[in-house]
């Protein structure tokens, strides 16, 4: 049981909880800006999950300098592939947030309201 109090287990658990909180925020909120904020929270939680899965205990960052020599890098570094994937994902996340906010601004100019109850022109 005490094994579950290591860093990667706690971060994976917090990532899953944050994913649930963000999902709850998207479903239950009526303001469009709050939905966009919850979407950003879901994004952050997925990134935390990915980086935590690539962590190996008692190892250091995947950079070869005076701390890690070239010959025994296999025994001393953590996984560099999830970090490379998360690097790209963070930048795409900010692009998506900017696009969502532009759409929210155009919708506000159309209907003068930020509640999604007012946008029911596609309901049948």
């Amino acid at each position: 049981m005490i094994q579950y109090l290591e860093i990667e287990y706690i971060t994976v658990f917090a990532g899953f909880l944050l994913l649930m909180v963000g999902l709850w925020g998207i479903i239950s909120q009526k303001n469009i800006i709050k939905m966009i904020i919850s979407f950003g929270i879901i994004d952050t939680s997925i990134h935390m999950l990915l980086v935590a899965i690539g962590y190996i205990r008692n190892r250091t960052a995947p950079i070869i300098d005076s701390a890690v020599s070239k010959s025994d890098a296999v025994d001393q570094i953590t996984d560099p592939v999830p970090q490379a994937l998360v690097l790209t994902a963070i930048v795409i996340g900010v692009g998506i947030t900017a696009l969502l906010l532009t759409y929210a601004l155009k919708l506000f100019r159309q209907n003068k309201s930020l509640e999604i109850n007012q946008y029911n022109s596609l309901k049948w």
Partner: peptide, 9 residues
Amino acid sequence: YIFLAAPDV
């Protein structure tokens, strides 16, 4: 992320 040994991220 610093604790998880990922300085770039």
